[in-house]
Design a binder for these strands. Sequence first.
RNA 1: GCCCGAGUGGUGGAAUGGUUUACACGAGUGACUUAAAAUCACUUGAGCGCAAGCUCAUGCGAGUUCGACUCUCGCCUCGGGCACCA
Length: 807
Amino acid sequence: MESYNPQEIEKKWQQYWEEKKFFQAEDFSLPRRQAGKDQKQYLLLEFPYPSGDGLHVGHCRSYSALDAIVRQKRMAGANVLFPIGWDAFGLPTENYAIKHGVHPSVATEKNIANFKRQLKSLGLSFDWSREINTADPKYYKWTQWIFLKLFEKGLAYQAEIPINWCPACKIGLANEEVVAGNCERCGAPVQRKIQKQWMLKITAYADRLIDDLEKLDFPERVKSQQINWIGKSFGAEVNFPITDSQSSISVFTTRIDTLFGVTAVVLAPEHPLAEKLVTGENKEKVKSYIAEAKKKSDFEREKLEKGSKSGVFTGSFCKHPLTGEEIPIWIGDYVISAYGGGAVMMVPAHDKRDYDFAKKYGLSIKEVVSGGDISKNAFVDYGVLINSEKFNGLKSEEAIEKITKELEKKKLGKKTIQYKLRDWVFSRQHYWGEPMPLIHCEKCGIVPVPEKDLPVELPYIEKYQPTGTSESPLSAISDWVNIKCPKCVGPAKRETDTMPNWAGSNWYFMRYCDPNNNKELADSKKLKYWLPVDWYNGGMEHTTLHLLYSRFIYKFLFDIGVAPQKEPYQKRTSHGIVLAADGRKMSKSFGNIVNPDDIVKKYGADTLRIYEMFMGPFDQAIAWSEDGVRGVSRFLEKVWKKSLVCAENKTSGQDVLRALHKLNKKINEELDLMKFNTIIAGFMEFTNFVQSHQEGVGKDTIEKMLVLLSPFAPHITEELWQKLGHRESIFMEKWPEFSEKMLKKDTITLIIQINGRVRDIIEVKAGISEREAKELTLTRERVKKYLSDKEVKKVIFVAEKLINIVI
RNA sequence: GCCCGAGUGGUGGAAUGGUUUACACGAGUGACUUAAAAUCACUUGAGCGCAAGCUCAUGCGAGUUCGACUCUCGCCUCGGGCACCA
């Protein structure tokens, strides 16, 4: 008998499938086999960033799993779109290029070639004819086009916002490049620097991003994470008039019922009024405090531990809007400038942070909601109001209503809604990204590049190093920067900022529907046919970034008539990461990385695929184990041998057929639930069964088993299929159905319990009645032993399962 | 500090109210072999016992139930996420 040699057969079939174009999706077409049941299925995985490290075994895990689902759906008759492409712009490539003196476009090209080779070696059934690359001008033409539309509709604007600035490297840093407040490259402490940045107004879509989640088939934890991120809260805005001044401080609170407990107002160090309110004696102290706080990066500010909040008194006071009482104005670093106007009313009795702050600086604590013990802790729950003048005795809920009304009447406040969600910083001062298609004209201001001039190509330059001035490297190319204004033909300059890599990944799934269109983003009929994506799998870490951002962009494209629906993805699932054998993350610095190439070379792609599905629950993080890989390799060896041996037999016995239908049922029920690990276990159980019933297993059974296994282990099953005498590919087979009738057995195992403990097990005929079961049970020696003279109080009978005697 | 998960053999895990430990790994014994590897067969939660068998065990403690890994309450530990969100 020929032995199983994956290295030989896998290449062969990969080429065969590619030549036959098996995996190309057909626009509008009926599915291959079930005419009349025109069911399109669009399955998407997050396209990879082609890093220099090559494919990770983590990619293989989710890709193999999705591929199994895709292959099964094709066999069941669906017209499946399963595309792949490259999220090619990004910071790591630029950094790599600078470090090694290789142009980013060259590095990207090389990395893509490597990724492509690796993906192909796994035999994944992508439709390669639709491959896209976000760094290709033909692609980013449309990324720029989307930006122009956002600009046109007023959803792209410029704002002064702080960035992380490394004073030593003289470059702006991404959050990821800031490690514990220091620059990742040189270790210098990161500072904040104000920079003019392009922003996208995602906040305009906040409500819709929450409301439309309802109808989507997303995991609850994904939905709630997005909802919490958007953070819609209902509350009130209150004005505290500043003493001896015309102006007032506006604060936002969700707990207006605690208004009478305010003992200070605290401003963020960046608050525009902060410096103005400082009085003589405190001036120096406050100034240096503000300077210190501003220097701290967001990172440090966010990580301030309990108790380490700091603050300083400005020396100024404001008036309580209802009592007229004098209230001190403080500055505190725990107040976030970007939220709620950068000012809070401090109610130490009923807010934990305020409580800590008041304790630290000896501010008074005034209880206004009864129910707690404020000498020990802040009482944060709702309760009944006290010390609140005419509102005493009201419940918190009612008080919120009435106090808000009172403030509105006196024009000192109003009901408002606040969101945590912030607008999206959309520009980068880097080379390797899409240039923003805008022109700055001295006369006309900001002028969009006319659509006919798109794409604005990224110039190929030798010097893409940072400029040291916090401007993009593009600003140094005067040939490119200086241009005539498209409106007035006067002298003008190009915008030199580029877009973040999110720009390309926001809409890539739309381009797959029509990847070579030169006239528009994609043909509207094709979009209408394929979208929305039926099933999108990806990582949990993208929940509040890519997944949310791309929903926003899709909604925008829907509003301007480009996207066919309100939501891009109908169903979302997420995979767990693959950890190293030591339980840590795989990382170069730990030296614990597993290269999929090595596994494919040693054991074959089918083994790698099955192992990664078998390793554990799909959505959980699991550590790599090469012993586990060997176990799967043994399983495939067994499939190979038993298939060839049993194909000699003509027919199969009843027991074997029952086991086969049981397996078929298991797969049909568990595949969409992504219970790959138990499905593979089911196959192992089946092959073990075959091993012990070898004579009773016929060719019919083996063939059906191979068809069932083919989505999971495509190469070995295709090879065996042909060895068993078939000319057509196994993937042209129709997905098998199981019959419930075949699963029925004549006898069942009845568990006998006494007081809920198992005491005996008997084989009885199926469909046994309670009376029969009881009679049978009471004759058993082992039961009698326990019953002896005791009284039977109760008998619980669960049909086809167990009988429990209570004594 | 807040939010979300998860705790089951030597290990990864299975079981979502009904035989705890499927499947796999590892370990052990035997067969084949000059030998090893590979393969095959058997054993493998812990304790007591010659055995039949009994007792205990799903992080800890209570509770609901004829019956709890599963449901409820309280606690502990680990992992992931985070924007001190007023």
